[in-house]
Computed example of a mutant assay.
Amino acid sequence: MSSSVDFSFATRPLVPYAHDYRHGDSEPRHHHNCAQLVHTLSGVVRIETDLGHWIVPPGRGVWLPAGVPHALQMTGNVAARTLFVDPLARADLPASCQVVQVSPLLRELIVSALALPESYAPASRAERIYELILDEIRVMTELPFSLPEPQSEALISLCDALRAEPGESWTLENSARRINVSSRTLARRFYQETGLQFSDWVRRARLMEALARLARGDSVLTVSLDLGYESQSAFSAMFRRIMGVAPSDYFPPAS
């Protein structure tokens, strides 16, 4: 994340880095000449790139290939553990931005890497940990926490409006009328430009907004109604289906 980290890969294939952020902290658009895996222990990180928006809930991670310009916004107190990875360390590192599942093994390996020396002997424990981290990065599971950006001006405007007012009625028919096309044309063009069905994009946008609002302390009921759900139970069912737990368990109220 931070541009102040030493990115010398002369003696090791990756550089681990730990940094905590306060609610509302941000980093302006920048890029690195190395790849990044940002793993969050708490709080929510929003990443913006030219290709789309990603949101990283607690316990997950985001992979950013080398050279991708990105900006970050923190919601809640974010404890981040980052790996800066030599893009030449492996030939088959992920080639695209993606939010990923961080396995318990990878999480513990990242913690261990923070205490490793920069230089190490061949076949040493340090070398084995670094190599195992690279093995785990190669098999990370991608998660549906991204919002790919369309390319046409009309669809960009529609998506901006949706993000600004996620609680409005964003049916395919209503949305098509907003940009003066048929619902069939909107459905076709939207899938062509984003790779997602329009309804899936709307669902993801609402989930990403919900994660940010819950991380800053909004109640589940308030988030449910603000995002256009008929009831708290309907929102909680959607959240549980995607996240695996109820929103009250994922972001427990502060004691």
Rank of each mutant, 00 (worst) to 15 (best):
P148V: 13
T194Q: 07
S199I: 10
L162W: 01
T171V: 05
E149Q: 13
Q151Y: 00
A205Y: 04
S175G: 06
M140T: 01
E136G: 13
L172R: 14
F145W: 11
R184A: 14
R178E: 06
R203E: 15
R178M: 12
P148F: 03
E168P: 01
S146A: 14
R189M: 15
D135V: 06
M140N: 04
S175Q: 02
E136D: 11
R204N: 08
T171M: 06
V139F: 06
A205C: 09
Y191I: 10
D135K: 06
I137C: 08
P150R: 02
S146E: 15
R189I: 10
N180E: 15
W201V: 12
Q192F: 04
L134V: 05
E168G: 06
R188S: 15
N174Q: 09
R178A: 12
S152L: 02
Q151E: 10
S175R: 01
R138Q: 15
A161G: 14
Y191Q: 14
S199T: 13
V139Y: 00
E136Q: 15
Y191N: 08
F145N: 01
E153S: 15
L134E: 06
D200E: 15
R177G: 14
M140Y: 01
E168M: 03
I133Q: 04
V139M: 06
T141F: 03
P166R: 00
F198D: 11
V181H: 03
A187M: 10
E149D: 07
G167S: 04
V181L: 07
A205N: 12
C159T: 15
E173R: 10
R177H: 13
N180V: 08
W201A: 08
D200H: 12
G195C: 03
D160V: 13
L134Y: 03
I156G: 10
W201S: 12
S157R: 12
Q192E: 15
S157N: 14
S182T: 14
E168C: 02
T194E: 10
Q151A: 10
N180W: 00
R178G: 02
C159K: 05
L196R: 06
F190E: 09
Y191L: 14
R204S: 12
L155N: 09
A154P: 06
I156A: 14
E165M: 01
N180K: 12
A187K: 04
E168I: 01
D160I: 10
P150I: 07
E168Y: 00
S152E: 04
E149F: 07
S199L: 07
R189Q: 11
R189F: 05
V181C: 13
C159R: 08
T171N: 04
R138Y: 00
E165I: 00
R138L: 14
T171H: 03
W201D: 03
S146D: 15
S199N: 12
S199M: 03
V181D: 04
P148K: 03
L196A: 08
R189Y: 13
A164G: 04
L196F: 08
T141E: 14
L196H: 09
E168L: 11
E142V: 13
W201I: 08
V202C: 09
M140L: 15
S183H: 13
E168H: 00
N174K: 05
